[in-house]
Design a protein around this nucleic acid. Structure first.
Lengths: 205, 205
DNA sequence: CCTACCGATCGGTAGG
DNA sequence: CCTACCGATCGGTAGG
């Protein structure tokens, strides 16, 4: 039995073990999104992966580790996009619009992870929790700085930049309701409408 | 001991028992907001109320009942406001702005309940769950109808009304971040900024 | 109001 | 990969 198992492990490692953990993380994202982190059990996750609960621990360290990976994976993508956009030589309002479009695109195409990262990060435990909160705070400051630059250049209305950021980010989170709805307009139409309303709210068009 | 307890109960009923449950519901709102419904335990709640966990059940039927009361309490307030606003004889755009202001005000002044109702309703169980989802869907349709009326009257840009609703409601939910932040602008300034951006996004100002 | 306690479920480990 | 199982914690009840 043991011999059989070891042979099995070796085979898995060679063939496809590299993707085994990715499958677990992806299934976890869907499950945490649907039920919430606390309400989703490792037994639920095991069932959705197709193994027994104990077997999950051959691929992951803990339930919380799954949340770390999801939250920081998403946070890193946004940080890198911010780096890229900040260094571009385009008007501030275009930088803001680029970031808004990126957020919309992420929320449409990587719904589960982004949603979980947004709503379930509270359940991170403390070395990670403070780290995540700091990253988040810095990100929002950098976003607000883009908006403030737009205000200085008269491209954007005189508004409180941190308030604008909070509106933008949460408004885009509303794509959750679009995903849930039965009669969806197309992703392109959704994006156009959101850009019209949100960019229109910042400028005077 | 039993005699003492019965006398105590009688006294409580006369003096202040009417508010005892309200205290528990209010503390539950704060706790569910902070930790999430699933992660908040009845022992946590008991501690915050100042009694033993078992004693809570002299005032409430179950943990879920607390969630019902919070969710439907909030939903009813919004429904009644919608009734009132719909029957007013004012331009559609003013109806929309009135509703936006009401949402902002609710989110500022009844933060905990509104937040819990918004984020934790998933954990309702099924007679209540469908009921809540139906109410929510109807509310959003009525909100969208106000916006569509505004579009017909050329007061509002040509946009997809359901998308606009989703943006508005989620954007206002961003007041959560305002509550959390250490350097808050005033509630009045927050409201002004939100109205500028959101109403500006719908119209052409 | 409290003490005592129960059955269910949880995340995770041992061992093969 | 699985079976077997553990300690902790949960919502809730009995009884006074």
């Amino acid at each position: 039995m043991l011999v059989y198992y070891l042979r099995l492990m070796a085979r898995i490692k060679i063939d496809k073990n590299s993707s085994r953990k990715e499958v677990i993380v992806a299934k976890a994202a869907a499950l945490f999104r649907e039920k919430g982190f606390k309400a989703a059990s490792m037994r639920d996750l095991a069932e959705s992966v197709g193994v027994e609960a104990a077997s999950l621990y051959n691929h992951i360290k803990s339930k919380t580790e799954l949340l770390h990976e999801l939250c920081f994976g998403v946070a890193n993508r946004f940080m890198h996009k911010m780096d890229e956009v900040e260094s571009q030589k385009i008007p501030a309002i275009e930088k803001v619009e680029t970031m808004i479009r990126f957020h919309i695109d992420e929320m449409i195409n990587h719904y589960e992870e982004v949603y979980v990262s947004d709503r379930e990060w509270k359940h991170l435990s403390d070395p990670y929790l403070s780290n995540f909160q700091n990253q988040r705070r810095m990100y929002r400051k950098r976003f607000a700085a883009l908006i403030e630059a737009g205000i200085r250049d008269k491209e954007i209305k005189k508004i409180d930049a941190p308030t604008a950021v909070l509106i933008l980010l949460h408004a885009i989170g509303g794509i959750e309701s679009w995903h849930r709805s039965t009669q969806k307009i197309s992703a392109a139409a959704l994006t156009d409408n959101m850009i019209t309303i949100l960019v229109g709210g910042l400028t005077n068009k």
